[in-house]
Amino acid sequence: MAKVHGAVVIDGKRCKGCDLCVVACPTDVLLLQPKEVNDRGYHYAYAANPDKCIGCAACATVCPDACIEVYRVVERPA
């Protein structure tokens, strides 16, 4: 079976911490920083469980501030 690897790059400076990506993620990759805030005082999103990411881009699709880049690799068995 093909194995899907994903990764997200979140622009923490631009993120407004709205939490919509966290809710949208089907594999619970994302969380908001519990304590740390960015320059504008938002608890920005980060990949708390990066290994779970499948690169589905659900988070980026619903992000109102376009601050998530998504990468995806499909590894097919040899």
Binding site: H5, A7, D11, A57, T61, V70, Y71, R72, E75
Partner: peptide, 17 residues
């Protein structure tokens, strides 16, 4: 596969318009 290996231009599926 490491995160660095995944985050390569050819693997990008979503970016800021």
């Amino acid at each position: 596969m490491t995160t660095e290996e995944i985050i390569q231009p050819q693997n990008k599926v979503y970016s800021r318009p």
